[in-house]
Design a protein around this nucleic acid. Structure first.
Lengths: 65, 65
DNA sequence: ACTTTATGTAAAGTTTGCTTGACTTTGATG
DNA sequence: CATCAAAGTCAAGCAAACTTTACATAAAGT
């Protein structure tokens, strides 16, 4: 699962810590997701989409064939 | 998290077992998600969206204020 | 060189998604 | 009523998401 969180963060001038706070998760969770260590839960994906006013598909991309 | 899986299943004439097979999960998982016992993982949500050719948001709805 | 801020990483623990296996309930049909 | 397919449910266990604590690295400024 790829994602555009790092770019979106940059566009909005957010640190991982600040984004974590806005999403109600730990900074490590944001970092792990950005680094592709694991996928976010669906609720978290929704939160991110709502925050950036985007569709989930515009932030997270499935990379299955 | 609400979802339209039951309706989509009906529209496509699928049993929980058949849908489970198409999504590569157990029948109990489909049932539990339909009944709102837990949320699907993001990858599973993507699989469902792909299967029904819909956006994740058109299948699953966040119910957070 | 020192400090500060952002990021990366790791271990241990909790919670949630999902599995298997088994059993019960419901609804339709003979 | 008997039966059968579909749906519902439970328990035990494994796997993945997420937490806290803690430490390490890198860049930037003073």
């Amino acid at each position: 699962m790829k994602n555009r969180l790092k770019v979106l963060r940059a566009e909005h001038n957010l640190t991982q810590a600040k984004l974590a706070e806005l999403l109600d998760v730990s900074r490590q969770t944001v970092n792990a997701i950005e680094k592709g260590k694991f996928d976010p839960s669906l609720p978290l994906a929704f939160k991110a989409a709502r925050l950036f006013k985007l569709k989930i598909e515009d932030i997270f991309q499935d990379e299955e064939l």
